[in-house]
Computed example of a mutant assay.
Amino acid sequence: MCLYTFLLHLGISVAVGMESGITGGKEAKPHSRPYMASLQRNGHHTCGGMLIRHDYVLTSAHCLNDFSSRNHLLVVLGAHNISKQENSQQRIQVEKYIQHPMYDQNNKKDESHDIMLLKLKTKAKLNKFVKVMPLPKKNGKIPANVKCSIAGWGVKNPKDHRASSVLREVTLKLQFSFECKNKWQDYFSSERMICSVSDGKHAFCQGDSGSPLICNTTPLAIAAYTFYDDCTSRKYPELYVKISYFLPWIKKKIDENSIYD
């Protein structure tokens, strides 16, 4: 499992974990989130993702940062326990990686374009275990204090870097944008990002960036990063890339890459 960190200077040096898992949550009901994807390399879970069309998965752009060979990235759909070969699972290779053009892995101060489309080599077979998650219809205002949920196969404890075998989920509360800006300063874009606040026990953590944040059955954002080594920090809200902002780009790229399908 790769771990991507960088230094953040907000008066003090802070390391930020770019890959997120679930801390303080619970095991999800098997196959209750049929849109979830496990991105794997060499048989190991690396990132989360969401099936948005039978041939496209939405995830974080930084999930490619440490890959020496992109041919080893595999999308696993229909999974609950990724340590087993479940009959419900579909394992599909990636045909094309489409990172947002404004994303730059070397510019650690702007992670607000951390979004990527994966075009699958073969179409997913939709059934009760594998379903498409519809995207939000417009870029609307997202209120604070709304309770949302996120799921993933990442670490349960930030001090134990072993990924979870089963899908886990946690409920988190959205934070006011001005609070996110106050804490993260230039590292937070209120236009392209939202954040949630931890109660000191519940959070996403290292191991599953790219997992969708679901609010009232709608996927509002993609997990981006959190305070490294202290995922449950009350001081620094957890950050997400807002999906609705990127709807025009998502549609454009899918249309461009579907001309010859």
Score class of each variant (00 low, 15 high):
residue 211 S to H: 03
residue 94 V to A: 00
residue 159 K to G: 06
residue 204 F to K: 03
residue 259 I to K: 13
residue 236 Y to G: 00
residue 21 G to V: 01
residue 134 P to T: 00
residue 189 S to I: 04
residue 74 L to E: 06
residue 19 E to F: 06
residue 230 D to I: 11
residue 3 L to R: 13
residue 144 A to Y: 09
residue 235 K to G: 02
residue 109 K to F: 08
residue 177 S to Q: 11
residue 202 H to I: 07
residue 61 A to T: 12
residue 73 L to F: 07
residue 151 A to M: 07
residue 88 S to R: 10
residue 6 F to V: 06
residue 257 N to H: 14
residue 60 S to Y: 08
residue 78 G to L: 03
residue 30 P to I: 00
residue 104 D to C: 03
residue 218 T to H: 04
residue 150 I to N: 00
residue 86 E to S: 04
residue 196 S to V: 13
residue 6 F to P: 01
residue 224 A to V: 05
residue 249 W to S: 01
residue 79 A to E: 08
residue 73 L to V: 11
residue 10 L to S: 12
residue 207 G to V: 02
residue 164 S to M: 12
residue 96 K to R: 05
residue 221 A to H: 01
residue 33 R to G: 04
residue 61 A to M: 05
residue 117 L to M: 05
residue 14 V to C: 03
residue 172 L to E: 04
residue 252 K to P: 03
residue 164 S to H: 12
residue 71 N to Y: 10
residue 34 P to A: 01
residue 21 G to E: 00
residue 252 K to Q: 12
residue 227 F to I: 08
residue 233 S to C: 02
residue 65 N to S: 08
residue 235 K to S: 07
residue 34 P to G: 02
residue 255 D to P: 02
residue 242 K to F: 10
residue 144 A to S: 07
residue 211 S to N: 05
residue 133 M to H: 10
residue 227 F to A: 08
residue 50 M to C: 08
residue 3 L to W: 13
residue 102 M to N: 15
residue 111 E to N: 15
residue 139 N to L: 12
residue 232 T to S: 14
residue 140 G to S: 13
residue 28 A to E: 04
residue 248 P to W: 01
residue 83 S to I: 02
residue 218 T to L: 05
residue 67 F to E: 11
residue 198 S to W: 09
